[in-house]
């Protein structure tokens, strides 16, 4: 193993660790929404500091690798991908924090049936599953797995586009709870962002492994 290899491996380990942290944040976010547990919100916020620090760490390592080792070809793509993935992960973490923040603002636990109506759980599970796929794909450098993410994102988008109508319905039924429903809609919007960011990570992954650029391409 060359010295560059060990440096690259170190970056990979850091990205994986960061992925785990963000995944953990997001799944706590789901629990928090479902159980209305404000302690979880604190945990998510605490984790955020670590995620941010890791991003800085990866940034610094990437800068060093580029400056000192001038990597080329697959090594270069890996470094570039890692750099972008860490930025995406940081924003995923921000979204988890954002979701948690709404718990603070909602005055009572959201009714399960309303959550079901807007397909909250389904959407969240899907988003987490996407993230799981991406983490595994990154670890195993499995682009097939990464591509699955794109299919799952379609479901997220669909739920998201229906969510507005569902929210209007809910508000009509219960106008005095408009506050809570708007927050619920915001969470849905955030989950949609989570899906997009996860998709971005998958794209970076495919760029790194196959040198194919999937960004900004019309998908059928």
């Amino acid at each position: 193993m060359t010295h560059l290899d060990s440096e690259l491996d170190q970056i990979k380990q850091q990205v994986i660790e960061m992925m785990d942290l963000v995944k953990n944040q997001l799944s706590k976010g789901k629990e928090a929404v479902l159980t209305f547990d404000k302690d979880l919100v604190h945990e998510i916020n605490a984790n955020e500091n670590r995620v941010n620090a890791m991003e800085l760490n990866i940034d610094r390592d990437v800068e060093n690798i580029l400056a000192l080792y001038s990597p080329v070809a697959v090594d270069l793509r890996f470094v570039m991908a890692s750099f972008k993935i860490s930025a995406d992960l940081e924003r995923l973490g921000d979204n988890a924090v954002g979701i948690a923040k709404y718990i603070h603002n909602v005055d009572a636990q959201l009714a399960q049936k309303n959550l079901d109506k807007i397909r909250f759980t389904e959407m969240y599970e899907n988003a987490l599953a996407m993230l799981d796929d991406v983490v595994e794909a990154f670890e195993k450098e499995d682009t097939k797995l990464a591509r699955k993410v794109f299919i799952k994102d379609v479901v997220l988008n669909e739920i998201n586009s229906n969510a507005a109508n569902v929210a209007i319905e809910l508000i009509k039924e219960n106008p005095e709870k408009i506050h809570n429903y708007l927050y619920l809609l915001s969470i849905i919007r955030k989950l949609e962002r989570v899906g997009d960011l996860t998709k971005n990570i998958a794209e970076e992954l495919i760029f790194y492994s196959e040198a194919k650029v999937l960004k900004h391409k019309k998908k059928k």
């Binding site: 916020n45 955020e48 500091n49 941010n52 890791m54 760490n57 921000d94 924090v97 954002g98």
Partner: peptide, 18 residues
């Protein structure tokens, strides 16, 4: 919708890793 968190002391965590 401003959602930036104030990063408390990320450098602390960074130093811990060294």
């Amino acid at each position: 919708m401003v959602e930036t968190m104030t990063i408390k002391e990320p450098m602390d965590a960074l130093v811990d890793n060294l």
